[in-house]
Write a protein that binds this DNA or RNA. Structure first.
Lengths: 321, 321
DNA sequence: ATCTGTGCAAAATGTTTGCACCACA
DNA sequence: TGTGGTGCAAACATTTTGCACAGAT
């Protein structure tokens, strides 16, 4: 499930790597790399060798072994340990760091990413003042199919689409919270220019939401089964509530003496928070569409922050005079 | 750093295991098991073989290998994978499940437990409906000493003391919060019998706190360096605030129209919460002193809950008449 | 033409087993 | 006295290397 373009991109990177190290591109390397890139999952040397031999029976085990080492060296592959007594290689290109859940019966492997888990892990290591080089979590268990004795074939999904799906879901939810916030806040503001600012931003967020919804539908159209793919990005949707106050929360916080200054301050805080939040999430996603979605989102929030700050300055200016 | 008693206890368990499986105790097995039990850390077969040979040069590698398998089988050892190309065996008896931080330079290994991390992990797996068999997290990095180029010998601590230390610290903090709560709540209650109940529980908690502080001092006396041992049980002290409201919080929640019924309800809620909390923590600690401390604590909280419930029933009874 | 790549076979590494002799219970 | 235990050596499984020949730039 890797597109031709992606394979081509990675082949270019591999060629560059070879040139840089005065190594040569050979027929064997080409077959091996191509086979690796076009196969999903976590291949052992032996498994890849078997695949390669289907295309060219003359290729030796050692060459596959050495080519995988080269791929690892140039950053296109990564060795992982799935505890089955052999080294397994997985794709790195456009794949974020992640952890594994492995079915001990059928060997099906699920990958996941949880920024919350990462944060917790970082906090723990920080206490010991270790400089982390790498870390991994592995969960071994029995998958639902094996629990029900009906092993079914593992479906293969385009991982970039999965990342995009998970990112879009979060971004849409955030966008909705944003719209809610600005509409609710606008209601509480009496001064026309201030209200107009909030309403304008609300409209902008609505537009963004529509864009995201469009992207979402396109994604579903492109890959009708994408919703069946296991969750990759684990996300605590309650965290959004901490960033974007709910309608009730807003009313409570702004209730009584309506204060435009306060509302603007709250909005700025919120935008900064959400900017930080989406930047952090983007950081977890190696070059993927998921990352692009989060970065775009972060940029929009930064933009809003500027707009609001201008309005805030104007209000304060006015107050001084 | 395993006491003679502990070694003896484990030897008994091993003997029982042998008997149950009609196996025999031999001179070699005795030496091997004893060496294993008396050595900390994560031993490979080869390392243990080396240690055993110091006591009895005639013991062969295979016997050490087979004895370690037997120890694993009977639940006194566990195989771990520290990614250094060999299987390593660690102690299980009286040691909770935990994860590892490994220094890639000097191989120093730190063990830690984070119930928060465990909870997160469980939540993630739940989404996939996997039945978890086991899981592990490994963090590889450079320890502070290796970062500073001054490798120092790894100090060895009595792990049970470390667990007790971490448990005591949390229990004391909880106890303090409890005392605070009951004193603050008592202040808000005008009816003498209600106030008396709260003050009595506050006194009880103070006594418990003293007991814990005594235990703490005894621990420090017993092992003067115990505070230097790395944290094992990671704990978010803010979590306590969610269980035991702070003095300000209490005043806020009970302010204005002082309602004894409300105060009692709040207290019951708190006791149930903290009972659950300490039970959960106890569950993470395999038979250790840490577990005992948490269980004792949970029992006390349950006791308080009963006391308060009686008082609550009395108040409600009175109201009906 | 030169230098790297390849495939084979062999070594290295770590784990596991077969077997003849040994020693608990 | 008989079953299981031990040590040795050999088998296994996987990864890694040496080397003579092949092939890419």
């Amino acid at each position: 499930m890797t597109t031709d373009e992606e394979v081509a991109e990675q082949l270019v990177l591999f060629s560059d790597y070879l040139k840089k190290n005065s190594l040569k591109m050979t027929r064997q390397r080409e077959v091996i790399v191509e086979s690796f890139l076009r196969t999903n999952g976590h291949l052992s040397v032996e498994e890849l060798h078997r695949l390669v031999k289907e295309k060219d029976a003359s290729v030796g085990f050692t060459t596959v072994f050495r080519t995988l080492k080269a791929l690892t060296d140039c950053g296109l592959a990564r060795e992982t340990d799935l505890q089955d007594g052999r080294t397994r290689f997985e794709h790195v290109y456009h794949r974020p760091h992640h952890h594994h859940i492995v079915c001990v019966d059928c060997n099906r492997t699920i990958e996941f990413l949880s920024p919350e888990l990462e944060r917790l892990q970082e906090m723990i290591v920080a206490k010991y003042q270790f400089r982390t080089v790498r870390h991994q979590m592995q969960i071994f268990g029995v998958c639902p199919d094996c629990q029900n004795q009906r092993p079914s074939p593992q479906e293969v999904f385009d991982s970039d689409d999965v990342f995009a799906r998970d990112a879009l879901k979060i971004a849409m939810e955030a966008e909705r919270s944003g719209v809610n916030f600005y509409l609710a806040a606008a209601e509480q503001i009496s001064r026309p220019s201030g209200r107009a600012t909030f309403l304008r931003i609300a409209e902008e967020e609505k537009k963004h939401l529509h864009d995201l919804e469009y992207e979402w539908l396109e994604l579903l159209k492109k890959d009708k089964n994408i919703l069946k793919a296991p969750v990759f990005l684990h996300f605590d949707y309650d965290a959004l509530k901490k960033i974007f106050p709910t309608r009730e929360e807003i009313k409570k916080r702004l209730e009584g003496d309506l204060d435009e200054e306060q509302a603007l301050k709250l909005a700025m805080e919120m935008e900064v928070e959400s900017y930080r939040f989406f930047r952090e999430y983007a950081g977890k996603f190696n070059d993927t569409r998921g990352k692009a979605i989060f970065l775009k989102f972060a940029a929009e929030e930064e933009d809003h922050w500027r707009t609001i700050q201008k309005e805030y300055d104007r209000v304060m200016q006015r107050r001084v005079h």
